[in-house]
Amino acid sequence: MSLLTADRRAAGAGRAKGPAGRPRAATGRRALIWFGTHAVAIALAIMFMAPLLFMFLTAVMSDEQTLSGDLWPTSWHWGNFAEVLSGDMLRWLGNSLLYAVLGTVFMLVSSVPVAYALARFRFRGRKVAFVLVITAMMLPPQITVVPLYIVWARFELTGTLWPLILPLLFGDAFSIFLLRQFLVTIPRDYADAARVDGCGEFTTMVRVILPMARPALAAVALFQFFFCWNDYYGPLVYAKPDSWPLAVGIATFRAAHNVEWNLTMAATLLTVLPVIIVFLLAQRAFVRGVTLTGVKG
């Protein structure tokens, strides 16, 4: 690489050296860059937050005002939230929780041993198994939906969320992949020490390795929870109106409520709120999980 003679520091690199002793021009330029980058970041941040803000402001407007295009509510209708949080919404909420909680628990129980085996056992076909995990993770669910629907219909489980929850008892490819990626980074010595102490493989996994893998477990559980919470396609295929989760219910909300945008936005906001809260509480696990792999979410 042939490099040039300009004498400029990267804004991000070399943090240790202070600006002291720099020529004036360079300091001014650095200030300009500092100002520029932060200005861009702030502008972008406003744009990123604007839709959520608009949602909120619309959610507390009166029905007539939502059609006016006004930005700021002239009167604050907090009752809108109470109005939507009844009847259908509560049932949808219950269904969403059932799907997400059970789904997450089932996924953890079934995926952890598989990921552990793929990460720590040496056996013939291990590479093939791992490739199959990645394949199953990447291929769209639509490919197998028709025969699966037929099977579930045969068990008379269509019309419920069970066709989406039960398969999670048999491992989720994405979670297996992500957990395995984390487990291979745990030094072998820990497990070996446990084994010397006479622990069986299962005990070693539960007592020694899993506590160390807690961040990865948290990330995987969060992803699964949000996947179920957000899932629209699955419930659309399988669920009936009385087993609809929030995602499907919200999509029909507007038509059912005669296009009352304020109520629609209030309901929508209520589906977003738990996600935001969990994210703020568990931010680190999230970022860690995403960076661990960078697929699906």
Binding site: W152, A153, R154
Partner: peptide
């Protein structure tokens, strides 16, 4: 009694066996 049911929902329930 359940109201506001579309034909899609009806058909889905029948084909799905429930």
């Amino acid at each position: 009694v359940t109201g506001n049911q579309t034909d899609d929902q009806i058909t889905n329930a029948i084909r799905g066996g429930t």
